[in-house]
Structure formats: C-alpha cells, structure tokens
Computed example of a mutant assay.
Amino acid sequence: MAKVKYYYDPKTLSYRKIEKTPAYRLRRSLFYLTSILLTSVLLYMVADSFIDSPKEKRLRRELDNMKIQYSILNERFDQVSDVLDDLQERDDNIYRTIFEAEPIPNSVRQAGFGGANRYKKLEGFENSELIKSTASRLDRITKEVYVQSKSFDEIVELAKDKSEFLASIPAIQPVANEDLKRMASGYGWRTDPFTKTRKYHHGMDFSAETGTPVYATGDGEVIRADSKSSGFGRHIRIDHGYGYITIYAHLNDYNIRVGQKVKRGDLIGFVGNTGRSRGPHLHYEVHLNGERLNPVNFYYGELTAEEFSRLIEMASQTNQSFD
C-alpha cells in the first residue's frame, strides 16, 4: 500500500493530503531523472580523473616503454661516444703523427649545427625535452662519425703514399753480404787509386768477383743503362721517385733495360771492372734531390745491428778507393 504524504498549509493551519496529480508525478520523475543524470556525470568525471580507460592504459604503457627505450638509446650513445673519443685520440696522436699530418681541431670535430631551430617540430609534447636532447645528441654523434670517417679516408691515402715511399727508398745493400770479398771503400775523403791524392769519394765500393749479382736497392724505374758517364764504365741509374736516384757503376753486364720498372731486390746487373776502376767492384751512390748522400745510412732494410755496426766501421776507414 502506497504511503500517503501530507503537507502543511499555513493558510488553514492544518496538514493537507498531497494529491498526486499528473503534473506532480511529472515533476517528481524529472527530478529523479535529473538527479540520476547529475550523479552519473559526477561519477564519470571522478572515474575519468582517477581510473584509466583501457585505451589510456595502453597509451600510458606505450609512453613508459618509450621512456625506457630512450633511456637505453642514451646509454648506447654513451658507449658510442666512448669508442669515438678513443678513435679520435688514436687518430690525432698516433695515426696522424705517424704520417706527419696535422690533427683535426676540436672546433671541427665538435662543430654544431647552425641555422634555425632544428628541433622546433619536437616541441609542445609532454616529453619534448627528452626527445630534443636525444635528437641533438644523435645529430652530434653522426657529425663526429662523419668527420672521423673522412679523416680515416685521408689516413688511408697517406698510408698508401707512405707505403710506396717506404718501398722506394734505397734500403738494402746492392751486393749481398755472402758475395762480398770486403768493403773496399766508404763515403768521404779517400786516396785516389790513380793519382794517389786525397779526393772525396761520393759513394761506397763493394769488392766482389766479376759476375756477382747486383740488386736494386728500392722500387723505381731504370732511367739509364749505358757507359756514357765519365769514369763509371757500364752503369745503371734508377729513379725511385721522391727525389731519390741510385747509381750502380763499373758493371760487367746488365739484366734490365731503360724504362723498366724494378722492385727492391730485383737482379739488375753484375759486378765488373769497367770504366775508371782498379779491380772488380761495384761503386754505389745514393742521390737525394741532386745531393749525394752517404749510402751507409740506408742499409736498415736487411742488416742486423751487429752487421750494421761492422759495416759502418769498415766504411769509415780512410783507405784507398777502387775508382
């Protein structure tokens, strides 16, 4: 049975029964509906503030995962930076020192990127600073790697040139030790075998039997093989490049021709006694940019320390030359 409700009528000073008219019922229904709607909205707002939706949970997980990935990426950047620093240190203080090249200035290695803000499109997000700093670091490392790569390209070219240079320098004896009778005469003031006066000897004389092999002392090109030079008899001249020329004089015969390319250690001729000579021997000279140098300083390619010391001792004796 429905409850009967009353209201107080101040005019009659008595309670009167509430009549549930259609209008009354409509007002009550609207009141309840409004209350329910407001309550639902309030609950939704509370739930939206404190409880994530499935989509929000997924997006939040993706955001957390992104932060972890950026953290891992920056740790790898740290490792790459350490390796790059080591490469730069080696490049400036080892590789470039070896090949006599100027080190790359830090202003070039660590140069920034000019112009407008490169990272403006990354602004306005919740994690903009993290993204911008990571992008900036990536750009900087990419630039340093590029500079280092170009430096290594240059070092490779220097190494190729240095390799050719080292192969071209006269660096061995023109006559093997086992074929030598003795070191007849060294570089410097010696007694001329014909005039018996003091005369400057611009090469080294290797005493050996006629027909003893004579070897090229460095890579180069044969530019002369004739007997048209006064006093040398049959002789060979090799242009090694880089300003170096070697002369092999008083030969018995040739094993090469003019214009031929030779390598260090190639057989080029045979010891003889032609030209202005007092006995079978090889007269050997080293020229650099037109200046005649002491050949003894170029035998580092095959001699032991003991052999080199003995050779210097014999070459320094002020005896009579063979030519």
Results as ranks from 00 to 15, higher is better:
R234N: 15
R234Q: 13
I236E: 01
I236Q: 01
I236T: 04
R237C: 03
R237M: 12
D239C: 02
D239W: 01
H240S: 04
H240Q: 07
G241W: 04
Y242S: 07
Y242D: 05
Y242Q: 01
G243Q: 09
G243I: 07
I245H: 11
T246I: 04
T246H: 07
I247A: 13
I247W: 10
I247F: 13
Y248D: 08
Y248P: 08
H250V: 04
H250M: 07
N252M: 02
N252S: 15
D253P: 06
D253Y: 10
D253L: 00
D253R: 14
Y254Q: 07
Y254T: 01
Y254H: 10
N255Q: 14
I256K: 04
R257N: 12
R257G: 08
G259W: 11
G259F: 11
G259S: 10
G259Y: 11
Q260D: 12
Q260N: 09
Q260A: 14
K261W: 06
K261N: 10
K261P: 02
K263Y: 03
K263T: 06
R264S: 15
G265V: 08
D266E: 12
D266N: 14
L267N: 11
L267T: 04
L267R: 13
F270Q: 12
F270D: 05
F270K: 14
F270R: 14
G272L: 06
N273P: 00
N273G: 05
T274I: 13
G275H: 09
R276I: 00
S277T: 13
S277W: 09
R278M: 04
G279H: 13
G279C: 06
L282C: 08
L282K: 06
H283I: 01
H283Q: 10
H283R: 10
H283K: 10
Y284V: 02
E285M: 14
V286S: 02
H287K: 13
H287I: 00
L288Q: 14
L288G: 00
L288S: 07
L288T: 03
N289M: 07
N289G: 06
E291S: 15
E291C: 00
E291Q: 15
E291H: 14
R292S: 09
R292Q: 14
N294R: 07
N294M: 05
N294E: 08
P295A: 05
P295R: 01
P295M: 04
P295L: 04
P295T: 03
V296S: 14
N297C: 00
F298Y: 15
Y299A: 01
Y299T: 11
Y300H: 12
G301K: 06
G301H: 05
G301M: 09
E302R: 03
L303C: 11
L303S: 10
L303W: 05
T304F: 02
A305V: 14
E306S: 15
E307Y: 05
E307T: 07
E307G: 12
